[in-house]
């Protein structure tokens, strides 16, 4: 939004550096305070200790393993939930009757926080892998679904009529007119979904799990390894940021025709 109002000023270098300044200052302050002993070690280990823990666990192979398990879980949930959400979004966005059958029920379900279903999910699936996947799928489904429906519904009818007049077949209309026009909205849905995906993952992995970053942190908590706990939290933050960066880049590329994204 701000790009709409502000003109581009400052060099590219400057623009890319500025967002990192505040985090950098915070980390430095953190290091200084902990090194000076102002904060007890048990409460907050210093950044260098956290980094050290990271190295240690990488060398033992534990960290890569947990990272891999968590990412896999997250991606699988995102793909399945996203695909189902997209499918129903397409169906209900394109066809009025389907929308009347499904939409109000789905909207009702949407109001249930998906994490509230954890007890039920455990009863259904136990505490194994399917339970976690199911939670992520549910969480990811709704933002993708809602935004796909909205994107498709708000397609400019002028463009659709133009396509019809120029003899586009129905699937060409879908592919060349409706989907590109819904894409900005769909991508917004995906970005929301990513946030929910990480949140769900964290909760699911801390509840019951024998691998993944959530497990790693919970396990470390039992042994009062605060540095590992912090490492886990930081990893979640970094993974979330990484996913967001990738989607933003994807957005900029897919929507490069739109002046708002250039």
């Amino acid at each position: 939004m701000s790009a709409v109002i502000h003109s581009r000023s400052g060099s590219r270098f400057f623009r890319e550096i500025v967002p990192w300044l505040l985090p950098l200052v915070l980390v430095i302050a953190w290091q200084i305070f902990t090194a000076a002993g102002l904060i007890p070690h048990r409460v907050l280990p210093s950044p260098s200790e956290v980094l050290e823990a990271g190295f240690r666990l990488t060398l033992t192979g534990e960290l890569p393993l947990h990272l891999w398990e968590s990412s896999q879980r997250a991606l699988a949930g995102l793909l399945i939930g996203g695909a189902i959400g997209f499918f129903f979004g397409l169906l209900n966005g394109l066809f009025g009757p389907a929308n009347r059958v499904f939409d109000s029920s789905l909207q009702m379900l949407r109001n249930v926080p998906h994490l509230a279903m954890i007890p039920l999910v455990i009863v259904w699936f136990g505490i194994g892998e399917p339970a976690k996947l199911f939670l992520i799928v549910i969480g990811v489904f709704f933002p993708v679904y809602v935004n796909t429906v909205h994107g498709i519904r708000s397609t400019d009818t002028r463009l659709v009529e133009m396509g019809r007049v120029y003899g586009l077949k129905p699937w060409e209309l879908l592919w060349q007119v409706v989907l590109p026009s819904a894409l900005p909205s769909i991508l917004v849905g995906v970005r929301y979904a990513l946030g929910i995906m990480w949140l769900t993952l964290i909760v699911a992995e801390t509840i019951a799990c024998d691998n993944g970053i959530g497990y790693m942190t919970m396990n470390a908590r039992e042994f009062l390894q605060t540095d590992v706990v912090l490492l886990g939290i930081l990893l979640y933050a970094l993974l979330g940021k990484l996913a967001d960066t990738i989607t933003r880049a994807l957005e900029r590329w897919l929507l490069r025709w739109n002046p708002a994204y250039r």
């Binding site: 002028r158 463009l159 009529e161 133009m162 007049v165 590109p180 026009s181 894409l183 025709w257 739109n258």
Partner: peptide
């Protein structure tokens, strides 16, 4: 072929 007040071009093409 219809032509409207706005050109109705596909912005993504």
């Amino acid at each position: 072929r219809l032509m409207f007040q706005d050109a109705a071009l596909l912005p993504w093409r």
